[in-house]
Amino acid sequence: MAHIDRRTCLALAGSAWCSALLAGRGEGRTLPSPRDAIRARYFPNVALRTHHDRHVRFYDDLIKDKIVIINFMYAECEGVCPGITANLRKVQTLLGDRVGRDIFMYSITLKPAEDTPAALDAYATMHDAGPGWLFLTGDPGDVELLRRKLGFVSPDPRLDADTSQHIGNIRYGNEPRQLWAACPGLASPRWIVESLSWLDRRESL
């Protein structure tokens, strides 16, 4: 069937609509790679500080080329956060020395104004978090942006649509392979490790 051409389109609707229509067919555009599209959509390269007070960039230093587990918490939370943190500690134990080598764990604060690196360091120590597991804070605007992009908050509060809930879930993913999923933060540590192993395959047999 013939594509609608620009002239007919203009007669029908008007130039902006037609541009969008023709653009929608991908004519004359080079498309970003899927990996780039995911990065642009979900991983702003904001500046963060670790609980060791080191400066890092979210995408470049923490996500790119890595297998990651991400959750949100805050230091004075005594509700569900300690349960998840304790659970993740067991996950770290099961993963052994892979954490920090090719698997990285990130706990990002929901209260960046209060949770300074020192406060996060105290929290990490209290929960006996091992190396390779970073607790992160930053400028409140940046952290809020991150929270929204990672889907922990409704991206557009104007719409009465999909909203955040994620108090208790952890996101896990293999960035270079564009594999992302989520699982309950309170699921058994063994199950979390098994889920993670799925992302970590060598290529096909």
């Binding site: 004075e76 939370c77 005594e78 509700g79 300690p82 209060e114």
Partner: peptide, 14 residues
Amino acid sequence: FAIVALSPAAIWSA
């Protein structure tokens, strides 16, 4: 009832 002043984020799970 009178509430004694407390720190803003005092949270119990115990």
